[in-house]
Design a protein around this nucleic acid. Structure first.
Lengths: 209, 209, 209, 209
DNA sequence: CAATAACCGAGACGGTACGTCTTGTCTTGCG
DNA sequence: CGCAAGACAAGACGTACCGTCTCGGTTATTG
């Protein structure tokens, strides 16, 4: 196992992660990995992606912006995709958490806001785009994030509405497909009215009173 | 206007195109553009995309495979995206034609096959992916292809079902969103059963008997 | 034969070279090699070597100083050694020419001045040093320069003094060995008195009156 | 004074050295320097130099081959040159010792064998080569080895042949210059016949009976 | 007989330079 | 003039070592 594989990538069936060893606090410079460097890289990559886009994002640029040596990046990540992926997993954990108490309509609205407005949403869209162009990215994104996210959501919907797995998956897809379609294909804004309309139409149809 | 802009890019409101000047046949060696070189480039780009993917597609590789000088490509296209776009417009014209007589269910099935199986569908998915990463690609793809395609389809649906423009657009999106979602996000096969289920569910809902 | 081999490296038995195609004058940028770039690289390498030494001489530094892209250097030379070698061959042609009329004592004095004072002598000493560390450099330097130089000098000595080849070679080595020993090993100045003493001692011994 | 300066480097006027503190034997891991680590580094450097050459010799490679941490090397040596230098001083002490009873012809033959065949001779030639490229190496080699060696030999020749210092130095240089010239410049073998010829010619000339 | 001080291995860190690759521009010479 | 050919400046790629820096884990004297 090469060092680049040691980046903690948790169980794909969940998106909870990072039991980071609770470093002392600031500069954990030693024989072990520097938390400061890790965070600097993740943040620099995020900032540069939002500011200049995926194409203009380079390892050299990230290294320079993070004040880190290029080799420090290559030691822990294989590519800029891996860096963005780590960012995605990190941020999605909170940004895509289910509301308490569980509420499907609120969750879909939160999902829409995540896709349309939040930096981590930008990261997901960029990775989804790149996944169309690169098999490795597609596998990483699905095995490491999307599949686990969907499994979690299907379970939630099942418990919430008392559906079987098949029906819950169909309902979830029916709710999310218009969202993804609107941002990925139509490139139109995911305003609240649209999400509400999707919810009304779809829930009426799947959950007749 | 630079030479690269001279590539005939027809009215965005339609996807019909290429009244190519019916070149003599073989080697159009003269003061005017070589049809042989143009086709060699388009075909080489298509082949290389299907064979090695978008990332591995380079201008130099296309030039080499087409037996054409690099500058000949740069004279007529701005980027590999433009080459693929030309291919897309060329092929989609027939692959996404409405059946005669007009039939919505047949058209959606054809659309699904286009996305899932045909080379031009691969091109569209690659360009859609790249459009998430590059604003210029997004604009070209929408202004030059997707918007016109959608306008045409909305009109067809209106005429076919007697709906107003708003309703026709909503119906069209409801039919296509699951398709795009399934290939772009879920990466699952677009089998006939799935398309039929989408059609049944959606048409029931939107067109109550 | 790769481009890097095309650098004209003439017959090893002679050190005359460079029938450069007498370029038009200024910027010969075209499908053919740029004379301006070639000279800029050679001069930059020479300057940087004299100023900062062999160790500090880098391809990137030469490229920057010459205002040339790194790849332009790699296209025509394999390494900084090759660049210095070209410089050596170029300059030695005149700096180590035999005087007219041929005069052994004058030639040895000229040789000493070449080794001790001239930039091209610095280049030769650097390459001789590097040849101790790198087999490839050793072969290049001997096959491409030293062997030819020695063959030429042996012939001159034969014709001049009427010796057979063996005797001429022994005499030449006896004259040059103290020079090289003094600069390479003793690191002491090659002053005129020393060279004269070597000539007196050695010629007395080899050419008894 | 930094630790790196603590490497015992004896009086330059002599090449005798190493009153090493007679360590316990095997693993002297404690507050004081580990003799095992020191020897492992010296031997690894020697082996790697002979096997792969000076250029391919790296601190990291030596550390790995010696089973030693990089920092352990940097604690005691400044560079790979310093390591090789220590090896040279260590080995030359015996390899270049004067025969008993003192015999000039035998010593020159021994010198030739040292240069041509022995590992320590390889080290000297490599350092001599590097000294042409690096001022620091030149100073270390002369101040720490060559000058002391020459002083010792001049003294020996004086005592042996009853010459004054000037004449003894000239004779010594006359004997050694052809040897160094032959290996450094001509790259030809230092066979016994050649050395004998040098001795016959030079001694005849300098010591006429 | 603990405390302490220096060495040791391990290896992450910020860097420099490497040699390769592709981009997009340019110029020549042929047809 | 279009075109094949290919050199050019620019700059990102991923790799190899550099020299510096903690980190823990050993001894061996010291207090």
């Amino acid at each position: 196992m090469t060092p680049a594989d040691q980046t903690p990538r948790e169980d794909p069936s969940t998106i909870t992660s990072q039991p980071r060893p609770a470093t002392t606090g600031t500069r954990a410079t030693s024989g072990r990995r520097s938390e400061a460097a890790r965070l600097a890289v993740l943040n620099a990559a995020d900032d540069l992606l939002v500011e200049h886009g995926f194409e203009a994002l380079t390892i050299e640029g990230i290294a320079a912006a993070a004040g880190v040596a290029k080799q420090t990046i290559y030691r822990w990540w294989k590519s800029k995709v891996d860096i963005l992926f780590d960012n995605l997993v990190l941020d999605a954990e909170t940004a895509l958490a289910w509301p308490e108490p569980a509420d499907l309509r609120a969750y879909v609205h939160r999902y829409a806001r995540f896709l349309a407005e939040q930096p981590a949403g930008q990261v997901l869209l960029a990775l989804l785009g790149h996944a169309q162009l690169d098999r490795r990215t597609a596998e990483l994104l699905h095995d490491g994030f999307l599949d686990g996210l969907r499994a979690r959501d299907v379970t939630q919907v099942r418990e919430l509405l008392g559906l079987d797995e098949e029906a819950a998956a169909v309902l979830l897809d029916a709710l999310l497909a218009p969202l993804y379609h609107r941002v990925l294909v139509l490139r139109r804004p995911l305003d609240t009215d649209f999400v509400t309309a999707v919810l009304d139409t779809t829930l009426d149809q799947h959950l007749p009173r």
